[in-house]
Nucleic acid binder design. Structure first.
Length: 501
DNA sequence: AGTCAGTGTACCAGCTGTAG
DNA sequence: CTACAGCTGGTACACTGACT
C-alpha cells in the first residue's frame, strides 16, 4: 500500500498503520522492544490515506519531542483532554504576547525592526486568525494549514510562532504564558508536512545568449533617456556576466592595484560572507575593458530600491528578453551563467567555483549540483535501465515461495529494488534476484567511486585553493585544452569535467 | 494642447533563497 | 534554525519625447 511506503519514508518503519474495527490503528515500535497502540478516529479507507499520513506524521513529531503516542494523539486531536477554560481569552493573550515578544526581540537587538515589520508580520497576522486555539499543538497545527505542506512560508511562520511561545513560557518572557498549555513541541518537523513538488533549478544564461542580448540593448536609441538607461544597464549586465556577480553586488565594487574586488557582505541568520577578489574566466573582462571602467566610475543604473528589482523591471521591458524570460531566466541568470562556464568550459571544482562566486560549497552544490553530477546520475540510470530491460526480455515466471505482495507488484511493474533480491531468491526467481544484486553493486560502486573522488578532490583542493586564486589565468582568449589541463594540474584538480565523460 | 507610449521610481504582500 | 535580501506579480504616479 502506497500509504505504508510513504510513511516509511517520512517517519520510518517504526510507525505502522492497520485496520481496527473500520478505523485506523497506529502501532509504534520503540527501540527497547515495547509497543504503543492507538486507534485513530479516522476510517480505514483509501480516500483517507492523505489524512492518515498527515496525522501519523504529526503524532511522530510529538513522540520524537518526548510524548507518548496516546498523549500526542490527544494533544493533537483532543479526544479526552477537556479544553482548558482560560480565565482570560487566549485569543487576546496570545496577540498581546506576540507584541511583547516582538518588542523584546527588537530591544535586545535580536532582529532588525524591518524584519519584525516585514517577515514577522505574516506570521503575526496568521497567529491572530488562529489565536483561539486550545493549546500550543492546536495553534501550530491550524496556523500551518494556511500554506502548502512543506512550503518555506509554513516553516518560517511556524518557527516564529513557536519561538514566541517558547519565549512566553520562559524567564525572559516573564512566564506570561502558562507552561502546561503553551509549551511548543521540541521538533516542528511534523507540522511542516512534505513538499509536493521540487523547486525549480537555477536557469543559467548561455554565453551566446548573453552576447546577443547585450547587443540588442538600445544604446544608440534616438531618445536620450533610453540611450542612457541602455548604456548603464549594459555595463551592469556585463559585470554580472563576466564576474558572476549578484545583482546587488554591482554597487559594491572597488579596484585595488588593478584587481577588482567586491566589498559586498551578505549577512544572514548565522554569519556573513567575506569580501572577495573577482575573476573573469573568459575574455570578456578585457574585451569590455571592465576593470578600467569600474576604476573610472562609469555610471551604473541608479536603482534606488534593489538592483535586482530594478533590473527585473528593465529586463521585462526589453523585447529581446521576452524569449529568455519564457525560458525561466532572471537577473540572476547572468550569475548562473558564470557557474555554468566555470564547470562546463573550465572544469573547475565545486570548491573553486563556489569561492569565486562568494558562497559556500553547500550552497553551490544545492544550486548547481545538477550540472556537476549529471554524469554520475546518468551512469546510475543507465545501469538500472539495463536491469529492467533484461526483465522485459525474460518475463517473470517462477516457482517457489510466494512473493510478498509489494515485491510482486514491483516485479510486474518492472520496478524492482535492489533490496528485493532475497525475496526473489526464495521464490526461485534467480534471474531477477541476480539482476537486483547486480544493480545494487553497480549503484554502490558508482556511489563509492563518487565518494572517493569527492574526498580526494576536497583534500587536494584545500591545499591548492590559495595558490589557485593567485594563478587563475586571465587570458584574453578562450583557453586551449592544454592550458585548461595545465591549469587543472596546477590546482590539483583531477576529476574529469562532465563533457569528457 | 492633448494624448500616447516608454521609462524610472516607489511601494505592497507574500513567498523563496542563502548564510553558517 | 533564524535573519535578511531577493523574487514574483502587481499597482500607482510623474516625467518626457513623439505623435496627432
Amino acid at each position: 500500500m502506497a500509504l505504508r511506503d510513504q510513511l516509511k519514508l517520512s517517519v520510518g518503519s517504526a510507525y505502522r498503520v492497520g485496520e481496527q474495527r473500520g478505523k485506523t490503528k497506529l502501532d509504534v515500535r520503540f527501540q527497547n522492544g515495547t509497543r504503543q497502540l492507538k486507534t485513530l478516529d479516522i476510517a480505514w479507507v483509501p480516500a483517507n490515506s492523505r489524512k492518515i499520513q498527515e496525522s501519523v506524521e504529526k503524532v511522530a513529531g510529538l513522540v520524537t519531542g518526548g510524548r507518548n503516542v496516546k498523549e500526542a494523539y490527544e494533544a493533537l486531536f483532543g479526544a479526552s483532554i477537556p479544553v482548558p477554560e482560560a480565565s482570560e481569552s487566549a485569543s487576546a493573550l496570545l496577540v498581546q504576547v506576540w507584541e511583547l515578544f516582538g518588542a523584546y526581540k527588537i530591544r535586545k537587538n535580536l532582529i532588525k525592526e524591518s524584519t519584525w515589520s516585514k517577515d514577522y508580520a505574516t506570521s503575526g497576522k496568521r497567529l491572530k486568525e488562529v489565536s483561539d486555539a486550545k493549546d500550543a499543538f492546536d495553534l501550530l497545527d491550524r496556523a500551518g494549514d494556511k500554506w502548502e505542506a512543506g512550503s518555506r512560508q509554513r516553516q518560517v511562520s511556524l518557527q516564529h510562532i513557536s519561538a514566541m511561545l517558547k519565549w512566553g513560557i520562559s524567564r525572559e518572557g516573564n512566564f506570561v504564558l502558562p507552561k502546561e498549555r503553551w509549551t511548543p513541541p521540541i521538533e516542528l518537523k511534523g507540522f511542516y508536512g512534505d513538499k509536493v513538488e521540487a523547486k525549480q533549478d537555477a536557469v543559467p544564461l548561455q554565453d551566446e545568449e548573453i552576447i546577443s542580448f547585450l547587443e540588442s540593448l538600445p544604446v544608440e536609441s534616438k531618445h536620450p533617456r533610453d540611450k542612457e538607461a541602455a548604456k548603464r544597464w549594459k555595463f551592469a549586465f556585463q559585470l554580472m556576466a563576466a564576474f558572476g556577480l549578484r545583482p546587488i553586488e554591482i554597487k559594491h565594487l572597488q579596484v585595488d592595484n588593478g584587481e577588482l574586488w567586491c566589498n559586498y557582505i551578505k549577512r544572514s541568520g548565522a554569519g556573513q560572507t567575506k569580501r572577495r577578489r573577482l575573476r573573469c574566466l573568459n575574455e570578456w573582462a578585457t574585451e569590455w575593458d571592465l576593470i578600467n571602467r569600474v576604476a573610472d566610475d562609469e555610471a551604473l543604473p541608479l536603482c534606488k530600491v534593489g538592483v535586482a528589482d530594478a533590473a527585473r523591471t528593465y529586463l521585462k521591458r526589453q523585447k529581446s528578453w521576452e524569449s529568455l524570460a519564457k525560458a525561466g531566466k532572471t537577473a540572476y541568470s547572468f550569475r548562473h551563467g558564470f557557474a555554468l562556464r566555470a564547470h562546463q568550459q573550465y572544469g573547475l571544482s565545486v570548491r573553486i567555483a563556489a569561492a569565486l562566486m562568494g558562497h559556500s560549497t553547500d550552497t553551490h552544490t544545492r544550486s548547481y549540483g545538477t550540472w556537476t553530477d549529471e554524469d554520475e546520475i546518468d551512469k546510475a540510470l543507465e545501469n538500472w535501465d539495463e536491469g529492467k530491460l533484461n526483465q522485459n526480455l525474460f518475463g517473470n515466471a517462477g516457482q517457489g515461495v510466494a512473493l510478498p505482495a509489494d515485491v510482486q507488484l514491483r516485479l510486474q511493474n518492472n520496478a524492482l529494488l535492489p533490496e528485493d533480491e532475497g525475496a526473489l531468491r526464495k521464490a526461485n526467481l534467480t534471474f531477477h534476484a541476480e539482476q537486483c544484486a547486480q544493480a545494487r553493486d553497480r549503484i554502490q560502486s558508482v556511489a563509492m567511486e563518487k565518494q572517493a573522488r569527492l574526498s580526494e578532490e576536497r583534500a587536494k583542493a584545500a591545499q591548492a585553493e590559495y595558490k589557485a586564486f593567485q594563478d587563475i589565468p586571465l587570458g584574453a582568449k578562450p583557453p586551449s585544452p592544454e592550458a585548461i589541463q595545465q591549469f587543472r594540474e596546477q590546482i590539483g584538480y583531477t576529476g574529469k569535467p562532465s563533457w569528457e565523460n
